[in-house]
Design a protein around this nucleic acid. Sequence first.
DNA 1: GTTGAGCGTT
Length: 454
Amino acid sequence: MSIEYLQVAEDEGEEPIELPTEDDGTLLLSTLSAQFPGSSGLKYRNPESKSFRGVRLSEGRLHPPPEGGWGSQIFYCVFPKENKRKSDDNLENSTAKTKRMETKLRCTDLIVLGLPWKTTEQNLREYFETFGEVLMAQVKKDPKTGQSKGFGFIRFASYESQMRVLAQRHMIDGRWCDVKVPNSKEGLIQQVPCKVFIGRCTEDLTADDLREYFGKFGEVTDVFIPKPFRAFSFVTFLDPEVAQSLCGEDHIIKGVSVHVSNAAPKSETRGGGGYGNRDMRGGTAHGGQRGAGPGGPEGPGMYQQRYNGPGPNQGGWGNQAGPRGNLDMPNLQALGQGQQGSNQQSCNPLGLGLNLGTIPMNPAIVAAALNQAGWGLIGNLQNQPEPNFNQGGFSSGPNNTNAGTNQNGGNQGGNNPGFLNWMSQGGGQSNQDGGQWPRPPPQQSQDKGFLKYD
DNA sequence: GTTGAGCGTT
């Protein structure tokens, strides 16, 4: 039998490649993502209206247009929001851009909870290949019966994929599943901050200016400019390597020479909390709508004055003291979910927010620091029942364990203030670093001073 | 042949 191929290009103007379809005429999403990592679907031009039409996706299979099949037209990849490569602005060969490809040691195994009993490793792999190259996929089974235990592990080749996967929940074989950093890895992951400090800003440099400019080097997930004007700002990248690669550089934006440096907040210790963490996951600035409801049913011990003031703390980084390993998630496509205080669900507090920097640390020490800092509650928080889930337009399937709770429709990632989970030890509102911005402290030394690791 | 919070026989 002859295999049918269809033409797929990453974007308009890009060279298409042919992808094989299945016997039933569909295209496996895994086939698509094998060639276009991160692609989540397909679209094509409706010759009449000239507008794009989306290709039907069901059960991991892309279905040919009902009008006339795949035909010979070109289909274009759809990427999760903002993931689209920029074909314009040919600055592809910037060093930052090229460096971002290999993110070797950053990925960890991720645990996938809530798998249907029937899901196989093959299923698991195929599902997650949508997000990028999957290096490992396993479903834990009972050794005797072979029956799935309902959870498994996956590992991605790229950190970007990992981040994207971590940032949302997943419908796998009819069930919503959670992907988290395994407990065994918590606090152990070597991470690098994604956020950089932009010094020497002028008042006319807008967030859009920064976003646009730095977007040339990699996907920008957040831009934060303190108000009132403070002559600095923060830019957060999806890829920590991009952030790192820019540190120490001077850049000219709209005629202004700004300096990029490490966004390490003052790492001074108060109450023994300072374990030199730095946030790696950028806060959510944007419009800063904070309409996600009341103070959020956080666990006991979470502060709740997070969103009351004029939103100065959108950055979610250093307030003055203590552990401010902020748990901000990158501002990815799926922020429509962990709202209303239920962000523990997919936030992986420790695994992501806790920024241990690039230094190896003794987990016991970290745990102690966390404990002292109040983070010891995390374990409990994670077990809080999740209030409202909002799958951003997704209609929850019948098997959704949260069925009925995710109906508070339509904040498609619009308001995502729920992701500034920093703790402040009495820091209150005025956490805008109160004026002392230690020039990028070689946090190494400070960290060492406190932790005395070797 | 059932189940639904969790944490990985290497």
